[in-house]
């Protein structure tokens, strides 16, 4: 069969173009966004009791997140990963929104900031977590003696920091086992956590301080010892651990 160079190029060009369009279409179909937002970092404003924790996540996630206010999160239908740093107070509206995200398949990283709440605030916090996420938290555990802040100015010899007993004989790390192994500094007060389903993913000794469980179509990751300050301090383990959450 005789075919001119012009015809050949025309036919093959069209085929390539059609194939290319098909490719684009296929790629578009394959990568069709399943979520409105890949990673939402929720700024709870005054209800974020550890602002430095929020800063830590901001620094670690850099451009890979969209920072939102609770009202904005409510407007999203789907979000792949939602991170809520330093949760101090949690009301029914917020709990409901977060619970809804889990039901629709999001991974929710809920970092507890309740270590520094007063007794009544803590009780309310406990109730909300139990009601909406079916997890149980206990009163914060003091991991260090208060005297570990240091000492009064120019202390007398007997009270010098070096002479104080080491109230924390153990290694000061939370040991995370999922989604990746990590050892991250504790944050002085840890919130013990448990639930009827799921499993502990982080411990300080025998104390379970991080939990993972499925809720609806999603995964709840609850941190009873804040990770954000370690992220802000550029802790490698903390950053790697967060990365492993992001690629779940």
């Amino acid at each position: 069969m005789q075919i001119s160079r012009r015809d050949f190029l025309s036919v093959t060009g069209t085929a390539v173009t059609l194939f290319a369009f098909r490719r684009v279409e296929l790629i578009a179909l394959d990568s069709e966004p399943k979520f409105d937002v890949d990673c939402a970092l929720l700024d709870l404003g005054t209800n974020c009791s550890l602002r430095e924790s929020l800063q830590g996540y901001q620094a670690a996630l850099a451009s890979k997140h969209q920072q939102l206010l609770p009202a904005e999160l409510n407007a999203l239908s789907r979000c792949r990963v939602a991170i809520v740093p330093g949760v101090g107070m949690i009301d029914a509206t917020l709990a409901s929104v977060l619970s809804g995200l889990l039901q629709s398949g999001s991974t929710l990283l809920l970092e507890c900031g309740a270590g520094f709440l007063n007794q009544s605030e803590f009780a309310s916090y406990q109730g909300m977590l139990h009601q909406y996420f079916d997890i149980t938290i206990d009163r914060p555990v003091e991991l260090w003696s208060r005297s570990a802040y240091g000492a009064p100015r120019k202390p007398p010899p007997a009270q010098h920091p070096r002479n104080k007993p080491d109230h924390r004989q153990a290694v000061p790390y939370v040991h995370y086992r999922w989604p990746s192994e990590a050892r991250v500094r504790d944050f002085s007060r840890a919130i013990p956590v448990s639930a009827p389903a799921g499993n502990a993913i982080g411990k300080i000794g025998d104390l379970r301080v991080a939990w993972k469980r499925r809720l609806g179509k999603g995964i709840l990751i609850f941190l009873g010892s804040p990770m954000g300050p370690a992220l802000l301090a550029n802790d490698c383990d903390a950053r790697n651990w967060l990365h492993s959450v992001m690629v779940l």
């Binding site: 260090w144 802000l232 802790d235």
Partner: peptide, 9 residues
Amino acid sequence: VTQEIPYNE
């Protein structure tokens, strides 16, 4: 800086 609260923080 203490044993409890590390330098970077």
